[in-house]
Simulated scan of single mutants.
Amino acid sequence: MARTKEFDPDAALQSALELFWRRGYEATSMADLVEHLGVGRASIYATFGNKHELYLKALERYGEAQGPRLLNELSQPGPALPAVRAVVRRFANEATTEDGRLVGCFITNTATELAPHDPAAARTVERSWEHLETLLHSALVRAQAQGELPADRDALGLARTLLVLMQGIRVVGKASPDPARVRAATEQALTLLD
């Protein structure tokens, strides 16, 4: 009797995340997942559910990995505006590197590919955006309290503007061969914080 190959579900989920991130949902078949993960179709179904459920689990994992990094970057003691600017510039730099153009941001990719017609994917994207918006808003409120940003500025409106800019950076950065476009727009938008 053949023995079922054992596998590490955590490593398989990470591998699925990387494949979905690189290729997208629609362009990734179950056969692709079986080959890439080195795990049988039945084991994938038994562990993760169908392709859609596996995709959503991979998307959740991506968000869980990004959240702590952003929290750390935006909640350091000291001046808050330099941290906000650094995060926005990091998004721009990542979007304009060769690897960044090839894969983009998994959340942004999902927003453009699945969220318009997939309520579960849309909820995950929205949670991610709400988290980023909350972190930016908190940092901007802290900047106001520390006198870095005038108190009469709309911190929530600025946070939302930066969120939209950062997601747009990821879309344009993925499609455009001209990094100057993204970098110039980023620097122009950051003047809102002056």
Rank of each mutant, 00 (worst) to 15 (best):
A2W: 13
F7N: 11
P9D: 10
S15D: 13
E18V: 10
F20V: 09
R23K: 14
A27T: 06
A31L: 08
D32K: 02
L33E: 02
V34T: 05
E35Q: 13
H36N: 11
G38P: 00
V39A: 04
R41W: 03
R41P: 09
A42R: 11
S43P: 10
Y45T: 04
A46I: 06
L54C: 05
Y62E: 01
G67P: 07
S75L: 08
Q76M: 08
L81D: 03
A83P: 05
A83H: 07
V84Y: 01
V88F: 02
N93P: 01
E94M: 09
A95N: 01
T96I: 04
G100R: 02
L102G: 08
T110E: 00
T110L: 00
E113K: 07
H117K: 15
P119H: 06
A120K: 14
R123Q: 14
E126N: 11
H131R: 14
H131N: 13
L135D: 01
L135R: 14
L136A: 01
H137M: 03
H137V: 05
L149S: 02
V164C: 11
R170G: 00
V171E: 07
G173A: 04
A175T: 13
D178I: 13
R181W: 15
V182N: 02
R183M: 11
A189G: 14
L190A: 06
L193N: 02
